[in-house]
Structure formats: structure tokens, C-alpha cells
């Protein structure tokens, strides 16, 4: 997994609430057996016209935001499906950080498995950051995961919170399967106990 320590990048405003997983990656593009190559399909329903040409009104198509790595959006970002294709599409597209007032649970967890940092902040701070992001190419933010700080274009610093374990894994690009496999003995002990209590689960 890609490490995430600190990025300095343009932030794009997407002031929509309930950005759902179908909007992030539509079902037409889930039929892959790879994790890569989905960036071209990110936000396809609002990013392209029917003929495949780009829509000028979609923020990430605008020249100032083409290299944006941060997205600022509305409440309940990532609601809907469990598809990990959503963070795969966003990271392949070049995004590294999503800032919103709230995220849907499954999407939020999926982000951390893919080097994508979701940051929750109160609505009034989001409103300020959204205003910053409207400045186009000048909307350059720094997101520092080690110090849990966002530096706004004017230099003001905003703090955020993240679960310590997730922060640790993301900073170090750790594979949590490997970490859990080290707990194998504990898992076996659990199974031995459960097998006696609920033998029907062990047929």
C-alpha cells in the first residue's frame, strides 16, 4: 500500500452532499478483476458527456483543478455500496485526500486500505475550506498526517483527528493482514473455545 505522510496540493471543491459510490464509480466499470486502471472512470456520470467528451462544468475537468490531489465535499461522502472500486478509482485518478463533514462507514474504512486519507471536519470549517478551494490553482493546501494538520492557502493551520492505528498503518504503508497473521495463535485459541460452545459452526 502507498504510504501517506504529507502532501502539498491543489484542493478541488465538490459541494454536493451524499456523494454516493455509484457517482464515484458507476456499475458499468466494476467489471474488472484488477485494482488498477479505474481512474479514467472516476465520477464518469458527471465527468463526461454521453459521447465521452469531458464536461466543462465538472470541477476536476477545469484547468485549475486537473492536478488536484485533495477533494473537499459534503456530508455522508461515499454512501452506498461497499465497492472498494471507489477508493481504487479515486487514487488511480490522482486523489490522495478527501475532506468532508462525514463519511459512510464502509467507504471510510476502505480508504485507509488504499493510501487515501479521509478527513472529517465540522461543517463550519468545511465551509471555510470550500471557500479556499474555490480559488482555483491558488487553492494549495498541505495535509500532514504525522502532525494531523492541514495548512490552508493563507497559512492558517487546522487540526484533525484520525484513529491512531489507522494513522500508523497509513504513514508506514503497512499491510494489516500481515500484522493480524502474527496473532494466529490467539485466533486458534478462540476457535478451540468456540468449537466447544458452538460445534455446529465447525462442520
Amino acid at each position: 500500500m502507498d504510504k501517506f505522510t504529507k502532501i502539498r496540493a491543489v484542493a478541488a471543491p465538490l459541494p454536493i452532499t451524499n456523494v454516493d459510490t455509484d457517482m464515484i464509480i458507476s456499475q458499468n466499470h466494476l467489471r474488472t478483476i484488477e485494482r488498477t486502471g479505474l481512474g479514467k472512470h472516476a465520477f464518469s456520470n458527471i465527468r463526461y458527456h454521453d459521447d465521452g467528451s469531458e464536461r466543462d462544468d465538472f470541477v476536476l475537468n477545469k484547468p485549475a483543478y486537473r492536478n488536484a490531489e485533495i477533494l473537499i465535499s459534503g456530508e455522508n461522502f461515499g454512501c452506498g455500496s461497499s465497492r472498494e472500486h471507489a477508493p481504487w478509482a479515486l487514487t488511480d485518478f490522482g486523489l490522495r485526500c478527501i475532506i468532508a463533514p462525514s463519511f459512510a462507514d464502509i467507504f471510510y474504512g476502505n480508504c485507509f486500505k488504499n493510501g487515501l486519507l479521509p478527513i472529517k471536519l465540522p461543517q463550519d470549517i468545511i465551509d471555510d475550506l470550500m471557500e479556499d478551494a474555490e480559488q482555483g490553482a491558488n487553492a494549495i493546501f498541505t495535509v500532514d498526517l504525522e502532525n494531523l494538520e492541514i495548512t490552508r492557502p493563507d497559512g492558517e493551520v487546522v487540526s484533525f483527528e484520525i484513529d491512531g492505528f489507522r494513522q500508523h498503518c497509513l504513514i508506514n504503508g503497512l499491510d494489516d493482514i500481515g500484522l493480524t497473521m502474527e496473532r494466529s495463535e490467539k485466533i486458534s485459541a478462540f476457535e478451540e473455545k468456540q468449537k466447544i460452545q458452538q460445534p455446529w459452526l465447525y462442520k
Binding site: R35, S81, S82, E84, G109, T180, M181, R183, I187
Partner: peptide, 15 residues
Amino acid sequence: GIGTSEVEHVMATQT
């Protein structure tokens, strides 16, 4: 529901 990384985590570790 879980994402695919978690599907893999469950497959390998049952947790």
C-alpha cells in the same frame, strides 16, 4: 458489508 481488502483479510485470518 466489507471492502475487498477486508475480504482478503477475512480469507487469510478469519478476523
